[in-house]
């Protein structure tokens, strides 16, 4: 379970002064559900997810994952979350197996428990054939499989995906989306960000539309389309975003 309440993040830099990247975002995602954050570039998706993964500290507001507060208990949160984004690369000089085992060890796994866990993950993801190859020698699709194995090695109850299909070919992207769907089937809480309407339509139980750091609307695909009297999510998105822009 993930609960977010009034979450805000401000940055200060010379060019822009005080800048509100995320401004009072609130949402909730139950076990076995996928919550999608849909927004354009710079909308605040990555900053929101980085706060949930405890990489950034919120300026205001609160977020809990499995009951643990991201500010007060970041270690406990990280132990219960798997975080995958375009910026979470692999260690190129480690083999696929060494990479996943390294993260398993950091999560406190060791010995036969770790070996069995990695074996079962590699079997389900089809990594065994290239497990002893260095990560920098793997194709993008293979790398994505190793990244997924890395996020799952400690079997976390919460999964956070920040634009996970960005830069992937169609087949690899399909495999990643299938994997996210599997996570829901296995009862995990999934937070997923994207700017691709089809992905949100296909996967998300609840969609939150984020623009300029604020959640401008939220609901199931049916709710959103009905509320804005348009069957096309893209049209709904454009209407909400341009309305915000005009406001």
């Amino acid at each position: 379970m993930v609960e977010v309440s009034g979450l805000s993040k401000s940055f200060s830099d010379r060019k822009r002064g005080l800048f509100h990247a995320v401004d009072g975002v609130s949402f909730r995602c139950e076990k076995g559900r996928i919550y999608g954050l849909l927004g354009g570039n710079g909308a605040g998706k990555t900053t929101t997810l980085r706060m949930l993964a405890t990489l950034l500290k919120p300026s205001r507001g609160r977020a809990t994952l499995e009951g643990f507060d991201v500010t007060e208990a970041p270690d406990a949160v990280r132990a219960r979350v798997g975080f995958l984004s375009g910026a979470t690369a692999l260690y190129g000089r480690l083999t696929a197996r060494e990479m996943v085992e390294y993260f398993g060890r950091l999560h406190g796994l060791r010995g036969s428990v770790l070996a069995n866990r990695v074996d079962s993950l590699f079997a389900s993801l089809g990594v065994h054939d290239f497990q002893d190859r260095r990560c920098d020698k793997l194709s993008t699709g293979m790398q994505q499989k190793v990244s997924i194995a890395r996020t799952l090695v400690h079997d976390p109850p919460v999964m956070i995906f920040d634009e996970p299909t960005s830069g992937l070919d169609v087949l690899t992207a399909r495999a990643v989306l299938g994997f996210i769907s599997d996570c829901r089937a296995r009862g995990k809480t999934v937070i997923f960000s994207t700017h691709i309407m089809r992905e949100a339509e296909k996967l998300c139980d609840v969609i939150g539309i984020i623009h300029r750091g604020r959640l401008v609307d939220e609901g199931t695909l049916g709710d959103l389309c009905a509320r804005h009297e348009n069957p096309d999510l893209e049209e709904v998105f454009v209407k909400l975003v341009s309305g915000e822009a005009a406001a």
Partner: peptide
């Protein structure tokens, strides 16, 4: 790009 990967670990 591995800094974010390691920082998301416990």
């Amino acid at each position: 790009g591995t800094m974010e990967t390691i920082l998301s670990s416990p």
